[in-house]
């Protein structure tokens, strides 16, 4: 079976002025469909960097050239417009600090991916469908009573649930979560993971979660450790 995402010898070097800061040197990893992978590693080992590369939010070094293939298509050679589409359709991101838009209500935050996907007319045309889908997702994460609230009015755990619903709006096959429970207490974090895993089962979602939490790592199908810019 073809892996959902396969990474071959990817390098990433940041530049601080003229000084090159190598972060990833030759990471290879393959993610099977439906798999739940936990990525562990010391702080600064490049976990977030790897996740951003997987999600097409950043590009790996051109030299030495590696490959990141999503369902056989090389993400690293996509034009920027294509990459935008990739992030919009194939990937759902969940961040440690939720990153909700404060001007939007909970529902609108969830709808954001759909708003980005569709133009005004197309969006208006399927407005009712999209709204009921957003509502359904919010129900799944247990927030059906918070639809018209602003993010500022929610607790950290609730905000992260909104972020998860938002990431799933366009029904992506791959969810990338960067320390989704890092900002939450243990109990809340556990509940968030419960919801994520429930959603994963229901949607046959592939899950890649960066974490420092051994508990989460324990629940994963596979644990990948990053050490010195390589998969250990």
């Amino acid at each position: 079976m073809m892996p959902l995402l396969s990474i071959h010898s990817v390098h990433k070097t940041y530049r601080l002025g003229r000084v090159p800061v190598p972060v990833l040197h030759g990471v290879s990893l393959s993610v099977e469909p439906g798999e739940f992978i936990a990525i562990l590693g010391a702080s600064g080992s490049g976990k977030s960097t790897l996740l951003h590369l997987m999600g097409g939010l950043d590009r790996p070094d051109a030299e030495p050239r590696g490959r990141i293939e999503f369902q056989g298509r090389d993400v690293t050679t996509m034009a920027s417009g294509e990459l935008d589409g990739y992030r919009n359709n194939a990937i759902g991101f969940v961040f440690q600090f939720y990153h909700l838009l404060p001007e939007f209500t909970v529902t609108r935050n969830v709808l954001l991916g759909a708003m980005i996907r569709h133009g005004v007319l197309a969006y208006m045309g399927r407005r009712a469908d999209l709204h009921s889908r957003a509502k359904e997702l919010l129900e799944k994460v247990g927030l059906s009573h918070r639809l018209t609230h602003r993010p500022q009015e929610l607790s950290g755990g609730e905000r992260q649930r909104v972020a998860i619903a938002r990431a799933l709006m366009n029904d992506p096959p791959l969810l990338l979560a960067d320390e989704p429970t890092g900002n939450l207490d243990h109990e809340t974090g556990g509940k968030i993971m419960d919801s994520l895993l429930a959603l994963r089962r229901e949607r046959k979602l592939t899950l890649v979660v960066v974490t420092h939490d051994a508990e989460i790592a324990r629940r994963a199908d596979r644990v990948v450790r990053l050490l010195d810019g390589r998969v250990a």
């Binding site: 999600g55 939010l57 920027s80 992030r87 991101f93 838009l101 991916g113 980005i116 938002r166």
Partner: peptide, 16 residues
Amino acid sequence: TQDIGVLRSLGAGRGG
């Protein structure tokens, strides 16, 4: 700035 990053992560393009 952060919101712009969020929009980009959700698939918004530069032009958009």
